[in-house]
């Protein structure tokens, strides 16, 4: 039972990052393989302003969000968009975002050093007892935030005019531009928000484990896995995927040891992709001829 609770909470963190994959995939059909580095970027940006006593904590968290968001939008415009021009099968963006990941990771390591740094921004200490499992309040906040942000994104896309534009671009970018909607602007905006979310996750995560350049890299594979299991086309996907992945990997590692935890999670990805390539909640792409 304890494993299940911890798994759900852990799944929340993955879900938050998975949400940023889903967001960029819906609007641009691309994934940013450098998401892990944006997590670290957000965390270090918040540390950089942690000594500004005039800035209240929400402001410092916002700095973490904005730093990652702005860099994210720039990366989209200059390093993703140019590599998506050759149609559906053009996956050069995949290589370019991997390269961005290398450059950012290396740069952050050189600037900040490889060892973890303490981060006090938005730290909440103490644990709560849930069904017999001691859960850190910080992790609980992260998981709660993942749920809140997912619901917020769903409401925004379903109920607002911005969301309408996003759904239009997602379904048919060419026709969307006939309606005066710029697919590029929508794409840049979703990179802004998606990478901002990664930065936000970084600030909160760093408060528990400390900020280190590789802090996001370890989350990357798990959060891609969560996004894929849930379905890259669905904003509900990360919540379901996060819960499944978190619980499965925790239970497996409790039962058989740590190595099996991750193995079980990744095997879940393979099983889902084989059975339902579009993910559990994903929609099959219409075949065009």
């Amino acid at each position: 039972m304890e494993a299940v609770v911890i798994g759900l909470v852990l799944g929340g963190l993955y879900a938050l990052l998975a949400q940023s994959f889903v967001l960029t995939f819906i609007t641009t059909r691309t994934l940013n393989f450098a998401v892990g580095e944006f997590v670290a970027l957000g965390a270090f940006a918040a540390i950089a302003v942690s000594s500004w006593s005039w800035l209240p904590t929400p402001g410092k968290v916002a700095v973490g969000f904005l730093a990652a968001a702005v860099v994210g939008a720039l990366v989209y415009r200059f390093l993703v968009l140019p590599f998506t021009t050759q149609g559906e099968h053009d996956v050069r963006w995949l290589l370019s975002t991997v390269a961005v990941s290398f450059v950012m990771l290396n740069l952050i390591t050189n600037v900040e050093g490889p060892s973890p740094q303490r981060s006090d921004t938005a730290r909440i200490s103490g644990t709560v007892d849930i069904l017999g499992a001691g859960v850190g309040k910080q992790q609980l906040v992260l998981a709660g935030l993942a749920v809140v942000i997912s619901l917020l994104l769903i409401v925004v896309t379903q109920r607002t005019s911005v969301g309408l534009m996003m759904r239009a671009v997602s379904q048919d970018p060419d026709t969307a531009s006939l309606m005066g909607v710029s697919p590029r602007a929508v794409g840049a905006a979703s990179y802004f928000v998606a990478m901002g979310l990664a930065g936000l996750a970084g600030v909160l995560y760093a408060a528990t484990v400390g900020a280190s350049p590789v802090m996001g890299e370890t989350l990357l594979v798990a959060s891609i896995a969560v996004a894929i299991v849930g379905g890259l086309g669905s904003l509900w996907g990360p919540l379901l995927g996060g819960a499944l992945y978190g619980v499965l990997s925790q239970v497996a590692s409790y039962q058989w040891g740590a190595i099996w935890g991750e193995t079980a999670g990744l095997l879940l990805v393979i099983v889902v992709l084989v059975a339902k390539p579009e993910g559990l909640l994903g929609r099959r792409m219409e075949v065009k001829l």
Binding site: R167, D172, T175, M179
Partner: peptide, 23 residues
């Protein structure tokens, strides 16, 4: 109005028309 209509398939009729108003 493109060939084959090109409505946004998973938007409602109202939402499709709302997008037109955006332009």
């Amino acid at each position: 109005v493109p060939e084959g209509r090109k409505l946004f398939p998973r938007l409602t009729v109202g939402e499709n028309i709302a997008l037109g108003r955006r332009a």
